[in-house]
């Protein structure tokens, strides 16, 4: 290739610039937002995590001290970790199982699919709101609906599930599981992608329905399961509103619903320990990143891709 040739192949600067300007012109709002509202704050929050910084005064550099304290000298951090992990490890599988089971049931070609689908989807649309948390608080309180139903049906006088530290977290798990609808919709969409002739071929081969489910549906659905699992896990780590409302922002009773985000909120906006809270935030980011990476690494052992 001669030099003349190469220069020939490039339009002059003005023309190239015109194309670039169009692209960057439209991207500008996002780009500004990304730099000012995401990138900049991410960097500065990492810096803050290495300082002692409150509402008054300026940030004082203390190196890794915040992180050291988190790891070695902060029992509430470990409580929050335990609560959050329990919540994630219970709510995500529950949601997945419900979502998949209902999706498979709905995919049987029953009439009224749209109505059922709407009903199951509704809770995940409104489940994050304060109103639902308030409702939950009532349902699981001592004289709440659950206990009314239990005593009416079984004559069992239940405790106050919300204010009992050994059950309070599970009410929140249940609230999360109640919102399996959007995962279900994603599963339904995935199920519809599976070509019908696969089942026809399998039926001709004499495979039973159970076998078809295990040998065809599940493997072909693994990418969707994987995707849902990742998204749900990330979301579960970020859960906040329900715990806040149910516990009046305290994470109680006795820190039994102290979600990580709630602890983070308290440190930042109740105690105004911005430096320490930033360190907490980064620990959360790393945890989420770690779990996401772990899932992606595990994917090649169980997720089935066509190509």
């Amino acid at each position: 290739m001669s030099i003349a040739d190469a220069s020939n192949s490039k339009p002059p600067l003005s023309v190239r610039l015109r194309g670039q300007l169009g692209g960057y012109g439209f991207l500008l709002p996002w780009l500004l937002g990304f730099v000012v509202l995401t990138l900049g704050p991410a960097v500065s929050s990492f810096y803050l995590s290495l300082t002692d910084f409150g509402l008054m005064g300026s940030a004082k550099w203390i190196g890794a001290e915040n992180y050291v304290r988190i790891a070695s000298d902060d029992p509430r951090f470990w409580t929050a970790m335990k609560v959050t992990f329990t919540f994630v490890l219970l709510s995500v599988p529950l949601k997945l199982v419900f979502a998949l089971a209902i999706a498979v049931a709905l995919n049987k070609g029953l009439r009224g699919l749209t109505i059922f689908r709407a009903i199951f989807y509704l809770p995940s649309l409104i489940g994050g709101s304060v109103a639902i948390a308030v409702l939950w608080r009532q349902v699981f309180s001592g004289d709440g609906v659950l206990n009314q139903v239990l005593s009416a049906l079984f004559g069992y006088e239940g405790p106050s599930w919300i204010s009992n530290p050994s059950t309070s977290l599970y009410t929140l798990v249940l609230l999360a599981a109640w919102q399996f609808g959007s995962s279900m919709i994603i599963f339904l969409a995935g199920l519809r992608q599976i070509p019908t002739d696969m089942y026809e071929a399998a039926s001709i081969d004499g495979a039973s329905r159970r076998r078809q489910f295990i040998k065809i549906t599940l493997p072909l659905l693994t990418p969707v399961i994987f995707f849902n699992a990742v998204i749900l896990t990330i979301d579960a780590f970020k859960a906040f509103t329900s715990a806040f409302v149910v516990s009046d922002g305290s994470g109680g009773p006795i820190d039994s619903t102290l979600f990580y985000t709630l602890y983070l909120y308290q440190e930042a906006f109740t105690n105004f320990r911005f430096g320490y809270a930033s360190a907490l935030a980064w620990v959360l980011v790393v945890i989420i990143a770690f779990f996401t990476a772990l899932s992606f690494m595990s994917a090649k052992y169980w997720v089935h891709y066509d190509d």
Partner: peptide
Amino acid sequence: PQHAVLIP
């Protein structure tokens, strides 16, 4: 997660 950028 938004938490990483929340405080700044």
